[in-house]
């Protein structure tokens, strides 16, 4: 296992004076090359803040951040755009619609990072944009559309296309499917898994939805009040949680009846079909 990303002792506070509160309070994270890591927690747990800090869109107060062995946490988020590692750490946002400039076509938006960070021009640029959109499974006739002309699922694919266009080595995804219907979500989950495998990208999934994290990730970190309370392989943590908070989180999930036996079966409802 090669370590790709490492953060130690991360802290981040919001507010002033007596309202000052640590959203992230001493967190260590290690992400291996090509790994799928889950960051689970409820609203206000600090998981989204960590996502933004990892993507270097938000400054942290304390702690160090290493990417590929290089310290990148000293450079402020304001100056991150000009750094050589910018192309290698990308992010996908929850609100895919809001993450696209309403004035630009989808392909222009996807072209922007390629133009700015890999300095592609002309045919090479067009080709790279179309390749990314194809990989994300967006139909060709949608490339020139404006964001408001796309459905939620199509926008999610476009957002992923933009993030992978630069072939980043680390992709942060903040609730990438929370706004989608399950019928669409399943397709996006498959897409993300394939992209991770094919492009050998490490992915960090930030989500409150344990069932989504379960199918997508191999390792999970559970957050509560700015702290990581439990960490381990997804299968083990979900099957036998050690921390009471994780136990509570799992217990609150709606139960799915097993296919054998019908626990709530009403008396006398044996199924006999009328053929009318």
């Amino acid at each position: 296992m090669t370590v790709l990303f490492q953060a130690r002792g991360l802290r981040k506070a919001f507010g002033n004076g007596e309202h000052r509160r640590y959203a992230v309070d001493g967190v260590d994270i290690t992400v291996a090359e090509g790994e799928a890591l889950a960051l689970a927690g409820e609203s206000g747990s600090g998981k989204s803040t960590i996502g933004l800090i990892m993507a270097r869109l938000l400054d942290h107060d304390e702690g160090e951040i290493l990417f590929d062995g290089q310290e990148i946490g000293k450079c402020s988020a304001r100056r991150a755009a000009q750094q050589p590692w910018r192309a290698q750490i990308q992010m996908v946002f929850q609100d895919a619609g809001g993450a696209f400039d309403p004035r630009l076509s989808i392909s222009d938006s996807v072209a922007l990072p390629l133009r700015r960070l890999s300095h592609s021009r002309g045919n090479a640029l067009t080709h790279a944009v179309e390749d990314a959109l194809d990989r994300a499974g967006l139909a060709g006739h949608l490339f020139r559309r404006k964001p408001h002309e796309l459905s939620g699922g199509q926008l999610a694919r476009a957002g992923i296309a933009r993030a992978i266009a630069l072939r980043p080595r680390l992709l942060i995804l903040d609730e990438p499917t929370a706004a989608l219907d399950v019928s669409v979500q399943a397709g996006i989950l498959h897409l993300l898994n394939e992209l991770r495998r094919d492009l050998n990208m490490a992915m960090v999934f930030v989500s409150h939805d344990l069932n989504v994290l379960r199918v997508l990730c191999s390792r999970v970190m559970v957050m509560e009040h700015g702290n990581i309370v439990e960490e381990g392989p997804v299968g083990r943590v979900f099957a036998s949680p050690a921390h009471p908070f994780t136990t509570r989180l799992l217990a609150a999930l709606p139960k799915w009846p097993r296919s054998e036996g019908l626990p709530h079966q009403l008396p006398g409802s044996a199924l006999i079909i009328h053929s009318q």
């Binding site: 869109l57 755009a81 946002f93 993450a99 004035r103 922007l112």
Partner: peptide, 26 residues
Amino acid sequence: QLGYVMAARLAGCGHGYIIGRVLIPN
């Protein structure tokens, strides 16, 4: 703090570009 401004930052756009080419046109 909107998504598309964040996205522009991820795309390597500087503050001048974001103000002049992303925010003001909008």
